[in-house]
Each structure stands twice: as C-alpha cells, then as structure tokens.
C-alpha cells in the first residue's frame, strides 16, 4: 500500500513539474489569464456588494456573509480547475483517441489523465478566491480556532470533489455518445448560479433539486449556513462540515467508476 502511494506520488510530482514547464513555454497565454480571471471574479463580488447595499440584504444575508460564501465557492472552484480541468476535454480526447497513451501504462488511467496537465489557470482563480474569503471571514468575525480550520479544510476538499466528480460524470458521457462538451458548459452555468449566492433565495423546488439530485448546495451554501448561523431551510443530522466531504467522496467514487466503465467503451481512433 505504502509502495503504491509512493509510486503515485513520484509519478504525480514529476507530471506536475512537466505541466508547469509545458505551460511556461507559452507565457503570453498565461498572462491573459493572470489578469483576466481575478478581474472577472473581483467584479463579480463587487456587483453583489452594489446590489446588497442598494436593495438591502439578500434573504437575510449581509454582504460580508455573501463574500464568505463566495470565497468558499471560488476557492473550491480554483482547486477543481487545478485538479480536474482535464475532464472538461474528455469529448475531444475520445474523438482523437488520446487515451491510448494512458491505457498502455501501468498506472491508474484516471490518475494519469488528471495529472497529465495540471492547469496553472487554477492559480489565477485562487488569488481572488483567497482575497474574497479572507475579507469575508474577517468581516463576519469568523473564529480561526483549530476545529474551525480543520472544518474549513474538510469543506474545501469536499467541495472540490463535488465539482470534480460532477465534471467527470458529465464528461464521461462522451465515451458513449462521443460528445459531452455542452453538458460541461451547462454545469458551469449551474455552478455559477447555485454556489456564489445563498441557495435560499430560490424557490423550494430548486433548493430540493440542488440538495438531493445535484448536491451543489454542499459546495458552499450549507457549510456557510452552519459557520454563519444562517437558516439553511433543511434540517440535517450532523454538521455540514462533515456532510460536504462525505458527499464529495461518494460522488467521486461514483464518478471514477463511471469513467472506468466508459473506458471499456472507448474505441480509440483509426490508425
């Protein structure tokens, strides 16, 4: 087991090094993202500020509270971009037969696939994520006790897995249908709508859907409710800091098994 973990770490670390080297070969491309992405999200949170100050609090959420929620969401988004961005392109890779290379090597295919191109763009989303989260947590007087820190970390891991697993499941549809790009775009929009604002502003039906069917509420809304003492609308046993990683891990297990099933349908490309 330990040998196994060591093997994966050494492959992972070297792939990481290689992805950085590959991306630094084309710096102009990166610079666009370094400027554009933080600007995009800072403006997003600014807009919410303007709206809440003009039109009062959103459903009982003050601006700093929303910034706190927005911060958790954006941090998990940036982590999921770092680790799972490859899943956005499964369609292209299925059509081009790009999985051949991973399949002939004695390391897990999903692992090789994710690690093959760790995306620096993830870091450009992380910068505004950190700024907004630090701002939100200090204005709402979030207490950085040992347990709270652990909880925040668990929530971030879980939220990242929920996002990554969702991308993986939808992306894997391409193994059967040869297309999944539009599903990925759709879920991007859904993430934007459901994780940067309190879910409680939507009608109950929507809240039910995004809790039990597509559990995006666990990405930022439910954990933020608990940390901030806001009403979540649903009563769950146990703490959300636990629910988020549990949902994340279960979803990820489902996602990887769907991906592996998809690989059995993979047809490579003529050569």
């Amino acid at each position: 087991m330990l040998k196994h973990v060591k093997h994966y770490i050494s492959v992972g670390a070297y792939s990481l090094r290689m992805s950085f080297a590959r991306q630094l070969e084309y710096p102009s491309f990166l610079i666009c993202w370094v400027i554009g992405n933080p600007l995009n999200y800072m403006m997003g949170v600014w807009m919410i500020g303007v709206i809440t100050q003009r039109f009062q609090a959103l459903n009982g959420w003050t601006y700093p509270q929303i910034a706190f929620l927005y911060g958790i969401s954006l941090l998990s988004h940036s982590l999921s971009v770092l680790l799972f961005i490859q899943t956005w392109g499964i369609e292209r890779m299925v059509i081009r037969g790009s999985f051949d290379r991973f399949l002939v090597r004695p390391v897990g295919v999903f692992f090789q696939f994710c690690i093959d191109y760790i995306n620096l763009i993830g870091f450009t989303d992380m910068i505004p994520g950190v700024i907004i989260f630090v701002y939100g947590s200090s204005v709402v007087n979030f207490e950085w006790t040992f347990f709270n820190t652990i909880k925040i970390l668990l929530v971030l891991v879980g939220a990242t897995l929920i996002r990554g697993a969702t991308y993986t499941i939808l992306g894997s549809v391409a193994f059967w249908t040869k297309s999944s790009r539009s599903l990925i775009s759709m879920v991007h929009a859904l993430f934007e709508r459901t994780t940067y604002y309190p879910l409680s502003i939507y009608p109950t039906v929507i809240q039910v859907i995004f809790t039990f069917l597509l559990p995006f509420g666990f990405i930022s809304f439910y954990p933020a409710c608990e940390f901030l003492g806001q009403d979540s609308g649903f009563d769950f046993p146990l703490e959300f800091a636990l629910w988020t990683p549990v949902v994340g891990v279960i979803l990820e297990i489902i996602a990887v098994s769907i991906f592996n099933r998809g690989l059995k349908k993979y047809e490579s490309a003529g050569s």
Binding site: F99, L103, Y266, S268
Partner: peptide, 8 residues
C-alpha cells in the same frame, strides 16, 4: 490495440 489493452 486489443492485445495491448487499449480496446476491449
């Protein structure tokens, strides 16, 4: 490709 495990 079948012999090297790429295709089922």
């Amino acid at each position: 490709k079948i012999m090297c495990g790429i295709l089922q």
